[in-house]
Write a protein that binds this DNA or RNA. Structure first.
Lengths: 109, 109
DNA sequence: CAGAATCCTCAAAGATACTG
DNA sequence: CAGTATCTTTGAGGATTCTG
């Protein structure tokens, strides 16, 4: 499903990093704390294949590779922002629900 | 991260099933083709723990268990709809990008 | 009916080393 | 710098069996 392709662990975060402007491989890597070089490569490939970002090789020495969000990629910004906004607004409610749930579990035990 | 909790494989689909009205375990299971009983149980538990759905046991014989979306859960409808709407609107563009990408790969080989 | 418990596997993620 | 290649690990998910 297409939803699976964009709701994975890193895609949304990479898009967020690239939205303000293009960035290079290791810059993205540093921005996303905790991602491995392998996962980053794989996720960038999938994003590129789906037409959400473009990969541009700058023939300098040493070689530089820039990733940038495409127009199609930019149309995802709004839905992602809606989702992210919800998590921010609802974090307190969710934590409260979790505490209540965990409390019920403990009293049952 | 909270995003991971709601962008997993089934949560969004279960919410969609329950949005029109409450449903029972096996009804949800039948509605979601391909989910195992284990995954359904686990996902329902997480949704319940996060306060997005409620579990209600009807003391009949045999026992009936109903799941329903909470007010908090309903606030997720809009962000989810935005995301799902994007996939519907963009499916053609994504497929085109994929074909182009795969074409470039083959010509390189 | 609505699960809990158990076993199993396989694909994704991590670690490590190497390269143009 | 921007990856590729390999190996290993782990844990999510599937299949199956059992139960109040």
């Amino acid at each position: 499903m297409l939803l699976d392709q964009i709701t994975d662990k890193w895609s949304i975060l990479i898009l967020a990093v690239l939205c303000p402007g293009p960035a290079r491989f290791n810059a993205i890597r540093r921005a996303l704390d905790g991602i491995t070089q392998k996962s980053l490569t794989q996720t960038l490939r999938r994003l590129e294949r789906n037409g959400l970002i473009v990969r541009r090789v700058v023939a300098s020495s040493p070689v530089a590779v820039e990733y940038a969000v495409t127009p199609l990629g930019h149309t995802l910004k709004e839905p992602f922002a809606a989702l992210y906004g919800w998590t921010v607004r609802s974090l307190a409610d969710v934590k409260e629900a979790q505490a209540a749930f965990d409390g019920r579990m403990n009293e049952a035990a």
